[in-house]
């Protein structure tokens, strides 16, 4: 069971269909693990349904629209589980972006003990979406954020000043937070991260590495 959740604001905007692609992916990945947040999203969707219900003043020529309605189209078959779903620890919504296996990822070393790879979102190519891999016991350089940062753990766990984060947990960092995530002992930690504005690293060496490798 997940312990750390996206803030309600992200869940509501996901329900409203208003999240940019990278954040929507991260929330969809969390919902895979979290019945509690799925319930919040369902409640927000019910609110959308209630507003839809009230929004009646938009006359449509129903007779004309029904006259050309394609009643002959066959039903779309209910989706069934693939016969042999591939064994993967990557949530399905993320797989089109990063494949089904973490072992297939071509990492670039960013900092000793830390590797990264940029994820390209189709609708928003400039979005800062990436995967991070921290070696066991290794941390990210200390940093703050120019904007909100959302992180979900996909493998292993890490700990920072705000607590411990395991698979499915989401961390939200805003510009007021300065933190140093460190992968827990016992294995590496992989996270999927979406940043609204670039990180600000405290160390000039980290800033240099960021310029050459993170883009």
């Amino acid at each position: 069971m997940t312990q750390h959740h996206p803030t309600e604001e992200y869940l509501l905007h996901h329900a409203a269909g208003a999240l940019p692609e990278g954040q929507a992916l991260l929330v969809a990945a969390h919902l895979t693990f979290c019945p509690e947040c799925r319930e919040t999203v369902r409640q927000a969707e019910a609110l959308g349904g209630a507003f839809l219900e009230e929004d009646a003043a938009n006359p449509v020529d129903v007779v004309a629209a029904l006259a050309r309605f394609p009643f002959d189209l066959p039903p779309e078959a209910p989706q069934v589980a693939p016969a042999a779903a591939p064994i993967s620890d990557i949530p399905l919504p993320l797989q089109p972006y990063m494949g089904a296996r973490l072992s297939g990822i071509r990492w670039r070393t960013f900092w000793p003990g830390m590797q990264t790879v940029r994820i390209h979102t189709k609708s928003d190519p400039a979005a800062d979406v990436s995967l991070l891999r921290l070696a066991s016991g290794k941390g990210m350089p200390i940093h703050t954020h120019g904007g909100d940062e959302l992180t979900i753990v996909l493998h292993g766990s890490y700990t920072d000043e705000t607590g411990q984060y395991s698979v499915g947990d989401v961390a939200t960092a805003d510009p007021t937070l300065t933190h140093r995530p460190i992968a827990d002992a016992g294995g590496h930690c992989v996270c999927f991260t979406v940043i609204e504005a670039p990180l600000k690293f405290a160390s000039p060496w980290a800033r240099l590495a960021e310029r050459f490798l993170f883009r």
Binding site: G17, A28, L31, T32, F33, R38, A85, K122
Partner: peptide, 22 residues
């Protein structure tokens, strides 16, 4: 969203092998 982005809206899939059910 499909019409604007020409791709499917990201969402969880209840058939995901790692899906945690309600």
């Amino acid at each position: 969203i499909d019409a604007i982005r020409r791709q499917r809206r990201p969402d969880f899939d209840p058939n995901d092998p790692i899906f945690v059910p309600d």
